[in-house]
């Protein structure tokens, strides 16, 4: 129980990454593969933010006087993840447009029936 308490966010991040990778490798439907990619994306963002967390800290915003700068969490992973999320949705839309074009070409979403994607 103490292990679970200490590592909750790491377990969440790695759980999402591994479930996403399993979907990418084992599923045969292309839209589902893209859903798995979005899970991997969320998991990596969660891992970065949880590495930057400091126990007892608060958000790095000087919104009212009296907030000590020594009790703040790390702002750099937040700044990186902030842009990565918006980039992620644009790349996801690009992948889905490729999926739509593949469906118009081959008439199926099953990667076993598309020549060149089978493994």
């Amino acid at each position: 129980m103490s292990f679970l308490n200490a590592n909750t966010y790491y377990i969440a991040a790695f759980g999402l990454i591994f479930i996403g990778l399993y979907i990418v490798m084992a599923k045969k439907n292309l839209v589902k593969v893209v859903i798995g990619l979005s899970f991997v994306d969320s998991g990596i963002n969660l891992l970065l933010i949880s590495i930057g967390y400091i126990k007892g800290g608060t958000a790095p915003i000087f919104s009212r006087p009296g907030i000590s700068p020594l009790k703040m969490v790390d702002p750099i992973p937040q700044a990186l993840v902030l842009t990565a999320i918006v980039i992620g949705v644009a790349v996801l839309a690009l992948a889905l447009s490729l999926v739509v074009k593949l469906y118009q070409q081959y008439g199926t979403l099953d990667i076993r029936k598309i020549r060149g994607l089978k493994w």
Partner: peptide, 24 residues
């Protein structure tokens, strides 16, 4: 735990260097 030294510079010098309330 507190790990990174770079963030300390950003947090402590932010108000005098940029003047923004939100460090991010």
């Amino acid at each position: 735990t507190n790990k990174i030294k770079v963030a300390e510079h950003y947090i402590t010098k932010d108000i005098t260097e940029t003047g923004a309330a939100n460090v991010v």
